[in-house]
Nucleic acid binder design. Sequence first.
DNA 1: GCAATAGTGTCTATGAGACAATATAGT
DNA 2: ACTATATTGTCTCATAGACACTATTGC
Lengths: 253, 253
Amino acid sequence: MPYDPSAFPPFAVTVDLVVLTVRRDALCALVVRRGEEPYEGQWALPGGFVGADEDLSRAAARELQEETGLRAHETAGGFPGAHLEQLATYGAPDRDPRMRVVSVAHLALAPDLPSPTPGGDAQGARWAPVDDLLGATDISHRNAGGAHKASLAFDHGRILAAGVERARSKIEYSSLATAFCPPEFTVGELRRVYEAVWGVVLDPRNFHRKVTGTPGFLVPTGGTTTRQGGRPAQLFRAGGANLLNPPMLRPEV
Amino acid sequence: MPYDPSAFPPFAVTVDLVVLTVRRDALCALVVRRGEEPYEGQWALPGGFVGADEDLSRAAARELQEETGLRAHETAGGFPGAHLEQLATYGAPDRDPRMRVVSVAHLALAPDLPSPTPGGDAQGARWAPVDDLLGATDISHRNAGGAHKASLAFDHGRILAAGVERARSKIEYSSLATAFCPPEFTVGELRRVYEAVWGVVLDPRNFHRKVTGTPGFLVPTGGTTTRQGGRPAQLFRAGGANLLNPPMLRPEV
DNA sequence: GCAATAGTGTCTATGAGACAATATAGT
DNA sequence: ACTATATTGTCTCATAGACACTATTGC
C-alpha cells in the first residue's frame, strides 16, 4: 500500500486485437504473419504498443484502423465501422521471451470486408476460420484434410479463444450480431450470422418470429432484396436496442 | 507492427480490487483510506503494484490476502476463500497525476468476514455499502441523511461500478452467489444474498423451488439450523455446477 | 411447373410468477 | 395460541421449439 511511484518495475503495455467477421458462413479472425523473432513466420493477432499519452481504447481503435481501415464505435448501429470493446488483459511474466509485456486484448466485430487480405503494415494478413486457428493446440503446421492449421504465436490462441467465447455469448443477450452485417440486411442474413458464430442450424421460421418480435432490435427500411434468391426479403437496419430481452437462446445448452 | 522491444514507453502496472461482500442485507465493498497525496484522506479501492516477476492474477490474490486474509480460488465452492476474477483494465493517461499507470482491476466476492475492519497495511479499511459509495458522484464529503458519502479516489468510482454490475449480472447465470455465503447456508440465506445484491424482494417460495430444482447448484449437507428463527431450515453446500441453466431471472427487467 | 427463400399460423411442453396451504421451530 | 420462517402444491400466463402452410421470386 505505501505506494511509491518512483520505485516500480517497468512494463511494456500493448493492445492485441481479436477481429472477428463472418465470411462464407464461417466465423473468421484476422491474423498477421510475424516478420521477426520470436515466432517468426507464425501467425499472430494484430496489435502494437500503447503510446505514451494514448488511452487504451484509443490505441485499440488506432490498431484496428491501421489493420483493416475500419473505424471503431462503441455501439452497434452506424456503418461502416466495427464494434470494439475491451476483452481481457494478459500479463504472465514469460509470455514474451524478450521482456515483460502486459497486453490489453480487445475484441472487434466487423462486417465482411471486400478485400480478402486487408491492407496494413504487416507482411501478410488474412482472415482465417477460427475453427482452423483453434483446432491446432500446440502442434505447429499441422495439416489435416487440407485445412491450414497452425497454432498462433505467444498466448494468442488463448486470447482468440476468449474473444470467440465472448462473441458467442454476447450475441445471445445483445444486438451485437448486427455488427457482423452490412448496413442493411435481411432476417435470413442475420440468421446465417448466428448460425456461423454458434456453429448450429436455427429454424428460419422461429428465428424470424423471434427477431422481428423483439422491440428495438430491427428497424425495417422499406426496401427488399432478392440477393439470396427466392422470395424477396425485407431489409432492416439495426435498431437502437442494445440489450435483448428475452435473449436469443443458443440451442443444445 | 515492426515491434521494437527496445523502444517502448514505460508503464507502471497495478492491480486494484473490488472486494464485495453482503453485510446486514447490504452489498458492501472494501475501501481503504489513502495516507498520501494525491487524494490523501479519501477512500480508495485496495491495490498495489504488480511485481516484476509476478502474474497478474497472482498479484491480485496477494493483495486480497494482504487486505482481508482471504485466500482466493477460481471456482466457487471450497471455503474459506473468495472468488477472484479479472474485471477490466483502466489506463487513461491522466488517471494518476504522478505517472502513467495501467491498473488491472479484479473482482473478488467474499463471505461476510467476522472483523468489521479487516487487518491490512493500510491506515484504515472498512466495508462500505456500495449504494453509499456510488451515490456520491463527484461531490467530496457529501452528507445526506446521516449517510457517509464521499466519492472514491482516482477513477475508482467507475471501477467499483463496473464490479458491482459484473456481480449483479453474473449471479443470474452462475452459482457465484454462493461465494457470498458461509460454507453451509440455507436457501433463505442465499435468497437474502440475491435480494441484497439486486436490491429487490424475491418470492421465498418460488426461489426455493427454483434453486433446489436446479441440478448441481445446491447439495444438502443433512444438517438443519434455526439461526434465522422459525421452522428449521436445511443446510446446503455449493454444488459443482458453475453455470445455471435456466438462469435466475432478475425481476422487473 | 419447380426450386428456393420468406413469412405466418398453430400446437405443445416448459418454466416463471402468483399465491394457498402445510410444517416446525421459538415465545 | 401466536409468530416467524421453511417447504410443498396448484394455477395461470408467456414463450421456445416443432412443424404445417402460404407467399413470391427466378428458372
